[in-house]
Amino acid sequence: MKKLFHNYYFSTLLFYLTILLLGFIIKDPYVITILIFAGLNALSALGLSLLMGLAGQISLGQNGFYGLGAYLSAIFALNYQIPVSLAVLLSALISSFLAIFLAIPALRLRGHYLAVATLGFGEIVYLLLNEWGPGGPSGFGNIPKLSIGGLVLEDPLSYLVLTWTIFCLFFLLLQNLSRSTFGKTLHALHSSEVALRTLGINILSLKLKIFIFSAFLTALSGALYAHFITFLSPANFSVFYSVLLLMMVMLGGIHTLWGAPLGALFITLLPEVLRPFKEYDVLIYGFILTISLIFFRKGIFQALEKGIKYVLSFRS
C-alpha cells in the first residue's frame, strides 16, 4: 500500500487534481484559458519529450503536425460536417499517418541533419498553410466547438477538464511505456545503436513508432486547439512553435517526462508574468533558453531543487 502512494499513478493524480482545483478556485475565465493553453502545450511537449528525452531523436517540425492536426480537424468539421470529436480523432490519425512519409527517410539521418530535415518539413507545412490554407495568411473562423454526446463544451472550465484529462491519460500511458522494457530499449538508443542492432532490434522501426506517436500527440493537441479557439491562422503554426516546445522540454528537464507539463506551465505562464515587457519577448526567451542550456542542462526544476537543498544544508 505504501508503494502505491509513491508511484507515478498517485503523483499524476495529485498533479491532475491540483490543476483542476486551481481552475475551480480561481474561476477567472482568463486564467482558465491560460491553463487550457498550458494543457494543450503540455500535450504537444509530451510528444517531443518522448522523442527527445526517451529516444534521443530531435524534431524541429512539431509545428507541422500541430498545424496539420488543427487545420484538418477544422476543415473536416466545417466543410464536411463530420462530428467534432470524430474530426479531432481523424485528423490526429491522418497527421500521424503522414508522419510516416517524413519519418522513414528522415530517421536514417542523425543529429543536425535530422534537426534540419524536420525543420524543413515544419516550414513547408507553414508555407503551404499560408498559400493554400482556407483564408490564406489571414486565416478562417467559425470553427465549431467540441461537443461530447450532444453536450457542447462552451464553458472554458469544461474544456479545462477535458484538456488536462486527455493530457494526464497520455502522461500515464507514457510513464508506463518508459518503465517497460520497450522504454528501456528506447533509452538504449542513446548509448549504442550498434549494440541494439546486434541484439536483433530494428532501430528504424523502433524510432518510427516513437516518431509517429509523438506526431499523434502534437496533432491531437492542434485539433483540440482549433475547436477551442474556433479561429485559425498560419501565424500560430510557424517554426517558433517548435522552438517553444523545445524550450518547454529542455527547461522542464529532458530526462523525465515530468519536464513536459512543468515546462509547458512555465513557458505558457511566463508571457503573462512578463506582460509589461511584451515587446522584448524574443530577447527574454532567447536569454532564458541560452542560459538554461549552458548552466542547467537537466532543467530548471532540478536546478531549483538542488539550489534549495544547498541553501537548506547551510541552515542546519
Binding site: L177, T181, K184, A188, S191, A195, L199
Partner: peptide, 29 residues
C-alpha cells in the same frame, strides 16, 4: 557497447525483449 544509464539487469532484459518483443501498445497500457 553497454547501455549506460540503465542497470545491469535492464541491459540483459533488453536483449531478452529483443528476442521476443511484445510490442508498443502492450508496453503503453
Amino acid at each position: 557497447e553497454v547501455f549506460s544509464g540503465l542497470t545491469v539487469l535492464e541491459n540483459v532484459m533488453i536483449s531478452l525483449y529483443a528476442k521476443n518483443p511484445w510490442g508498443f501498445f502492450k508496453s503503453l497500457f
